[in-house]
Design a protein around this nucleic acid. Sequence first.
DNA 1: CAGTGGTCTAGACCACACT
DNA 2: GTGTGGTCTAGACCACTGC
Lengths: 261, 261
Amino acid sequence: MNPSLSPPDALAAAADSQAATPAFSPLYQQIKGLILQSLQASEWKPGESIPSEMELAARYRVSQGTVRKAIDELASGHLLIRKQGKGTFVATHAEHQVQYRFLKLVPDQGDLNTEGPAQRAIVDCKRLRASAEIARALALRSGDTVLQVRRVLSFANVPTILEDLWLPGTPFKGLTAERLADYNGPMYALFETEFGVRMVRAEEKIRAVLPDKAQRELLQLPHNTPLLSVERIAYTYKDTPMELRRGFYRTDTHHYHNDLN
Amino acid sequence: MNPSLSPPDALAAAADSQAATPAFSPLYQQIKGLILQSLQASEWKPGESIPSEMELAARYRVSQGTVRKAIDELASGHLLIRKQGKGTFVATHAEHQVQYRFLKLVPDQGDLNTEGPAQRAIVDCKRLRASAEIARALALRSGDTVLQVRRVLSFANVPTILEDLWLPGTPFKGLTAERLADYNGPMYALFETEFGVRMVRAEEKIRAVLPDKAQRELLQLPHNTPLLSVERIAYTYKDTPMELRRGFYRTDTHHYHNDLN
DNA sequence: CAGTGGTCTAGACCACACT
DNA sequence: GTGTGGTCTAGACCACTGC
């Protein structure tokens, strides 16, 4: 879209550009796309504020209401956060409120805050060649370098989650066990600040499984305790997969909570 | 709110009426509440269309835009469904698109449609006194009458889900094993048409468990197959719990799918 | 064609945060 | 007070549906 055009012209130009597919795309969707581009290009970084609605309206030559609708949709997708009287901010995994946004495991009594901060122990961290399965999940080629991490999360000093995760090697060049161990906070916050990778959504496949010997020992489990297997693919902007994670959750003291609506 | 007032007056009156609690409630939230009341009172029934935005605007003496915003929120909560050019409709569990809205179990290959319609077998259905646990979940008193149902769901003739569920006796007076067995469709659709109870949201607690003997036999499971335990409380309008359901899902051929955003 | 929801605009005013 | 997002209105026009 040419920002020098007046609104009706801008809309017409956009419609022309896809004349073959007569699909109608509202102006605010296009504005949404432009904002998304700026987010992806890190024009505004996580935690920072973006320009005010009026400024963006002037920049894109549309009315404030159109910008508002674009921002509304981005905010409902948790990409932006509106704060009345202050501004609109790029969402981040570092804020306390949303620290465990993708972790749906909660204690049977109380909540995660009751148990205090999680203890994170890196069990293993190495680079290797992607298997076919992992390459597919991360949209890589078989044999590409991936980083594999195994860690244990404990709450109130009880080991509760065992996680294996795989990251594409290129975007996470320079990530080591040491960096992971030293960082005290959510892994996704580290990804943002150190590697400019922001996870915006994820899909999980959940199953009940029996742990193998290594898993049983790492979680110090009694015999015959089934575990929740949570396989997650996390995506950054534009639906690019950036992490495959397989979590094994104890569910004798905790449960996976899900709201349906 | 007095509908005979002009918009600014209506807003002022609403603000006055809660002067003690200076909490500000936008007009569209109040309109949303009024529409919700009409839904709860079955003024418009599931599947039917509600009045047009213009009609509602006239009825409530507000602008179309305000009604629009109220409807938008109700639509995003799946209480209403907008259809361009046709109207706005009361959501229902009977429509094919949303038939399994609360069932997140999907086959590892394909989807639920691939497997064709579910086969439902009622194993047991009886009235009894609510235990303390069940009474608490359904906001009843211990000893109140509840209906208990056990059934098995099969896909492609493979028993896949075993469900125990409890319903409050009063709203579901007249529900019998026969009615359940005769009805060919989602249980929540039967609740709507026969008992005027529409489930609008639910919460699930998910765990990995080992089945007991009865469960293993009903699902024809190999030894030592862990199951996903899915405990659901479903709510109707105004957050009233109307069903407690404990499902046991096979996850060797299926998995529980969850989207995080 | 008329009726519905969907988009876009422009302007006024309100609630909230900072300074 | 100034600037931010939030609400409300009014009117114009567009896209889709069905008569």
